[in-house]
C-alpha cells in the first residue's frame, strides 16, 4: 500500500466511523417526530440506491420503482395482517418477491433500449395502482390493509426494548431503517467497487465493447434490474411498516418520480449521493413549509411558500437545474471539491 492510498483508506474509514456515530447518536438529540422523518430518509435512500444501481451503473432508466416498492409493501402488509408473521421477517421476503418481479421484467427489458424501458416502466407506475385496486381478494382493494394494532407489527403501541434500552416506535423505526440501509449500502459498495461495477459500467457505455472483452451484457443488465427491484422491495416493506397502512394511493406515480428526483439530485451512480438525494426528497417540502417562519425573507416569498404545489415546482426545477448545471448531482459537487483541493 502506498502512502497516498493509506491516507485515503484512513480518511475513508474516519468518514465511515463519523457517519456511523452520527446515525447512532442522533435520536438522542432530536424529537421523536424528527426521528420518524429521518427514518423515512433511510427508506428513501434504500429505494434510491436501487434506482441508482439500475440507472447509474447499468444505464437503464426506470420510472416505475414505486411499483416495486408497492410489491414489497404489500408483501409485508399481507404477511403481517393476514398470516400473522412478525414484520421483521417479512422484510427480506418482500425484497425477494420484488426482486423476482424485477428479474421477470429485466429479461424482457433487455430487448428494450433506454427510451423504451422508460416508457414501459412509466406505464407500470401509472397502471399498477389500478391492478392493486382490482386484486381486491388479496390486496383489500381501495380500502387497503391496516397494520396498526396488528400483533405482528413490532412496537407500534408500547415501543420496543432493544439491548436493554427502551425505544419508542419512531426510534425503533429509525434504527431499523438505518441499519438495513447500512447493510444494503455496504453490500452494494462491495459489489460495485470492483469487477462487477466495472462490468456494469462497461455495458452501460458500450454493449459491443463490453461483449468483446467477455462480459455478458444480458446477464449483467438482468441481474442489475433484479437487484435494484430487491432494494426497492425492501424499501417498500419498511415504508409499509412505517406508515402502518397500505392502499393503492400509498404508492402513486408521484412516488416513482420522486425516487428519480432523489437519484438525479444525489448524483446517479454514487453511493454517498443517495443519502443526499433521500434527504432532499424528504426534507425539501418540510423546509419549504418552514420558510414563512423566517422573518428575514420578503413577505411575498413567505406567502408563496405556503401555496399548494410549490414543493412539486421545486422538485421539478431541481431536476432540470441539476441536470443542466451539475450533471453529477450532489456527489459530483463533492468529488469536484475534493479533486480541486
Amino acid at each position: 500500500m502506498t502512502h497516498r492510498s493509506r491516507v485515503k483508506a484512513v480518511a475513508g474509514g474516519g468518514v465511515l466511523l463519523a457517519a456511523f456515530l452520527t446515525v447512532l447518536l442522533l435520536p438522542g438529540f432530536v424529537s421523536d417526530f424528527r426521528a420518524s422523518e429521518l427514518a423515512y430518509v433511510a427508506i428513501y435512500a434504500i429505494a434510491i440506491l436501487g434506482l441508482s444501481i439500475v440507472t447509474g451503473f447499468s444505464g437503464q432508466i426506470s420510472l416505475g420503482h414505486g411499483a416495486f416498492m408497492a410489491i414489497g409493501g404489500y408483501t409485508t402488509a399481507i404477511l403481517v395482517a393476514d398470516h400473522g408473521v412478525t414484520d421483521l421477517w417479512t422484510i427480506p421476503v418482500a425484497g425477494v418477491v420484488s426482486g423476482v418481479a424485477g428479474l421477470l421484467l429485466g429479461v424482457p427489458a433487455l430487448r428494450l433500449t433506454g427510451l423504451h424501458l422508460a416508457l414501459a416502466t412509466f406505464a407500470i407506475a401509472v397502471a399498477f395502482p389500478s391492478v392493486l385496486k382490482k386484486a381486491e381478494g388479496v390486496t383489500g382493494g381501495s380500502q387497503g390493509i391496516n397494520l396498526f394494532g396488528v400483533e405482528g407489527l413490532t412496537g407500534a403501541i408500547a415501543g420496543v426494548d432493544v439491548f436493554g434500552r427502551h425505544l419508542t416506535f419512531n426510534e425503533w423505526l429509525y434504527y431499523l431503517s438505518w441499519s438495513i440501509f447500512a447493510v444494503l449500502g455496504v453490500s452494494a459498495w462491495l459489489l460495485l467497487r470492483g469487477r462487477t461495477g466495472r462490468a456494469l459500467r462497461a455495458v452501460r457505455d458500450s454493449h459491443v465493447a463490453a461483449t468483446s472483452v467477455g462480459i455478458n451484457p444480458a446477464a449483467y443488465k438482468t441481474a442489475a434490474f433484479g437487484l435494484s427491484a430487491f432494494y426497492a422491495g425492501v424499501a417498500g416493506s419498511l415504508f409499509a411498516i412505517a406508515t402502518s397502512f397500505v392502499n393503492p394511493a400509498t404508492f402513486p406515480v408521484a412516488l416513482s418520480l420522486t425516487l428519480l428526483v432523489g437519484a438525479v439530485v444525489g448524483g446517479l451512480g454514487s453511493l454517498w449521493g443517495v443519502i443526499a438525494g433521500a434527504v432532499f426528497v424528504q426534507f425539501l417540502p418540510i423546509w419549504i413549509g418552514k420558510l414563512p417562519e423566517i422573518e428575514a425573507l420578503p413577505a411575498s416569498v413567505r406567502e408563496i411558500a405556503n401555496e399548494p404545489g410549490i414543493p412539486s415546482v421545486a422538485y421539478g426545477a431541481a431536476v432540470i437545474l441539476v441536470l443542466l448545471l451539475l450533471p453529477g448531482g450532489a456527489a459530483g459537487v463533492v468529488r469536484k471539491l475534493r479533486t480541486g483541493l
Binding site: L257, G309, V313
Partner: peptide, 8 residues
C-alpha cells in the same frame, strides 16, 4: 422534471 414542475 418538467412533468413534476408543471403539475405543481
Amino acid at each position: 422534471g418538467l412533468f413534476i414542475l408543471l403539475n405543481g
